[in-house]
Structure formats: structure tokens, C-alpha cells
Amino acid sequence: MPYLAPTSAADALSALAAGGLRVVAGCTDVYPSLRPGDTLDAVLDVSGVSEWRGIKETSDGWRIGAATTWTEIVRAPLPPAFDALKQAAREVGSIQIQNSATLGGNLCNASPAADGVPPLLALEAEVEIASAPEASTRRVPLADFITGVRQVDLAPGELLAAIHIPRDATGGGSAFEKLGARKHLVISIAMVAAVIDCSTSGRIAKARVAVGSCSPVARRLPALETRLIGLSPDDLSDATLEDPVLYAPLAPISDVRGTDAYRRDAVPELCRRAVRAACVED
């Protein structure tokens, strides 16, 4: 079977339509997932598809090609609302991984601990899904695209082409907090991304907070976001943020990295730190 590395979206989609190909880009998740005896053949490598690479400002926001690497995110001039995404980018494995791994791969791999998902959720990202013929694309909110552990809303013949960040979501500052048992190369025990607008009078006017590694798919915390409105970063005392109702979307489990109880205990503090840092950044 072949190794196809098209450079145009049209070629990639028509090859995909023919079926039988595994879509890869940075390959940083696909190789480690191979079981003994598995070889990687029949490959559609989309990492060179020009339409699916790079970051562009558009009339309604930002479009990030799905094959954009984390290093490209780190280096791109982007508004402060993207700082959480950049901080997450620096935590994706190592520089070696960031040079190869792509945003689209991170989303399609659909790990509960995907570093890219919480900051993109907090940016109200939508994904652009393409299929042959090239004209047919559909857009889905990221929150709906990832449907479960290792599961995404992609039909045969479809692939993730780009991520869109609506302009409305790019105001304010942002921050990312990752909790792990070592400093680098670590899968998070829990992580929080916050995009906060507190530009007027130092009080929080808009807040979007998303938590990863504490549910099958990273989740926004709407009740917490509502609670934050009108508060100043100095008001985020224990009592303000400890109410379990605020974290109802989460369903942490116990694994080798930590217990469910620990995750429940840590998340409010990570949220507090992320929100405060996001305010300071603005």
C-alpha cells in the first residue's frame, strides 16, 4: 500500500474518498499507538497540504489550519486571548514533539488529556470538516466534535481541515494551568484554560473556563463562568470557587496519575490560578 503525501486539499480529499487510508500528520500519536505487529502503511500524510497549514486572520476571526504545528502556534503573533493556547503548546511533550505535532492531530486523537482542547474550548473554537468534493465543508463547535474518549465526529471520507476562532472570543487575557507530577513531558493530572475579560474596572466581565483530564472530553464550566462575572481577581477566595455545583460537568476518575478526589480538590485551585493569571495578563 502507498504512502501518499499530497500538497493540495483536493488531492488529499479525493485520495481519502477512495478509502483504505490512515490519515496522519505529525505522527506523534500514531506511532506510539501501534501495537506489536502493527505497521503503518496505507498512509495519507496531510502534513504538507498547504490549505491546512498556517494561521490566518479572517473577517470573522482566526483560521488555524489543522496541520499547523504547536511550534507555529508558539511563534505566531496572536492576541492575548491565545496566550493559554500558546502556554498549552509549550506543554505538548517537548520541543521535538511541538515541531511535528499538529493541532488537528491533537483534536482528532481525542485524548481526555489533550493539551490543546481546553484552551480551544475557552476560545469557543469551531472545527472545519472537509470531504470530497473539496467544496463540501461543514463547521461544528469543538465541544460537539469530540464525542468521547478517542472518538470524534468524522464520517468516512471526512477529515479535520481547520480550526476557527470567532473574533468575539478573542478579547481579554488568558492563561493555562497544567498539573503534573513532573515538570516536562508530562500527561496532566488536570489542566485549566481560562479566557477572561476584565478590562473594565478590574472586574470580570466575560469568563470562559475549560478543564481537561477530568472528564472523558474536556469541558467548559458554565456555572463557574457565570459565578465569576462581576468579581475582581482578588475576590476569588476559597469559598467563592469551592462550590461543587460549579464543577458539575466534570467526572474525574482515579488512575496512575492521581485519584478522582485529588482531581476534584485541585481543579478549583487551578481555576483560581488560571483566572487570576488571565486577568493579570490583560
Binding site: 503525501a5 506523534t28 506510539p32 498512509v43 511550534t71
Partner: peptide, 14 residues
């Protein structure tokens, strides 16, 4: 750019 050769397809070096 530093990459892990074990996670790079040979084709990507072409």
C-alpha cells in the same frame, strides 16, 4: 528543527 526520528516518517524527510 529538532524532531524525534522515531516519530517522523521517512517520507517526511524527503
Amino acid at each position: 528543527a529538532p524532531v524525534c526520528a522515531c516519530l517522523t516518517t521517512a517520507h517526511q524527510a524527503a
